[in-house]
């Protein structure tokens, strides 16, 4: 019995780290791909084709189901991360009290960062599935026109506005902590911290500008009736 418990702790810690790293890596790539709208509808369209494996399709369009399968896989990783991370949540009222008291008597950057991660993690637990399921349940909707419509007319823009900073901050504090956790003897702490700060700012900037462009696209150039984009 005790053996199983022992096994579990290491196991959970590793899966929490691994799934977190995968999700952070995904977020990084996701925001960059999504920002292709900055280069125009055509660029975004091409990215969407590539993601749907258009290069395998003779017609060049691709298969929306690729995104669905990928999205479901991501959802699974998310669940692993949530389940492994939930044990970090202070479960007793007394622990919250101690934590609050402690961050006052011994104020530290790291305790604050961790509290930020607790809160952001909690928020993400609810917001990310909404976003992810929204994509998985509407295959084929990654499209310059349809996406802009979702963002402007269906209110998903608000979801993304909230998700962007919360997800980015949670992910980069996490990456910094991961680096220290497993390779604290090999990596320079302050450099990693600075790097994480720079990447955080970059991703938020990138995401915000893309979101502005999405709004602009949605307001100025949606066809009526709404049809998917087709390159000229």
């Amino acid at each position: 019995m005790q053996r199983i418990k022992l096994r579990q702790a290491g196991w959970l810690d590793r899966w929490q780290s691994l799934s977190g790293a995968i999700l952070a890596g995904f977020l990084f790539i996701h925001l960059h791909l999504e920002s292709s709208i900055l280069l125009g509808k055509d660029a975004f369209y091409k990215v969407a084709r590539m993601l749907e494996a258009g290069f395998l399709d003779p017609s060049g369009h691709g298969y929306p189901s690729v995104i669905v399968v990928f999205g479901l896989g991501l959802f699974a990783v998310l669940m692993v991360h949530a389940i492994a991370a939930i044990r970090r949540f202070p479960t007793k009222y007394k622990q919250w009290k101690i934590l609050k008291e402690f961050s006052k008597t011994v104020p530290q950057r790291e305790t604050n960062l961790w509290q930020l991660q607790l809160v952001s993690g909690f928020v993400l637990f609810f917001l990310v599935p909404v976003h992810l399921l929204g994509i998985v349940m509407n295959p084929g909707s990654i499209d310059p026109n349809l996406s802009a419509f979702r963002i402007v007319e269906q209110g998903f823009g608000f979801l993304y506005m909230a998700l962007l900073p919360v997800a980015v901050i949670h992910a980069l504090i996490g990456v910094y902590r991961l680096a220290m956790k497993w390779f604290g003897d090999k990596l320079p702490r302050e450099k990693i911290f600075k790097g994480a700060t720079v990447v955080t700012c970059w991703l938020i900037l990138l995401g915000t500008t893309s979101l502005i462009v999405w709004y602009y696209t949605g307001i100025t150039s949606l066809p009526t009736p709404l049809t998917p984009y087709s390159p000229l």
Binding site: V106, E110, T111, R177, M180, K181
Partner: peptide
């Protein structure tokens, strides 16, 4: 033990 440490580095 080590798997409970959250690397807060205090």
């Amino acid at each position: 033990g080590v798997f409970g440490c959250m690397t807060l580095l205090g």
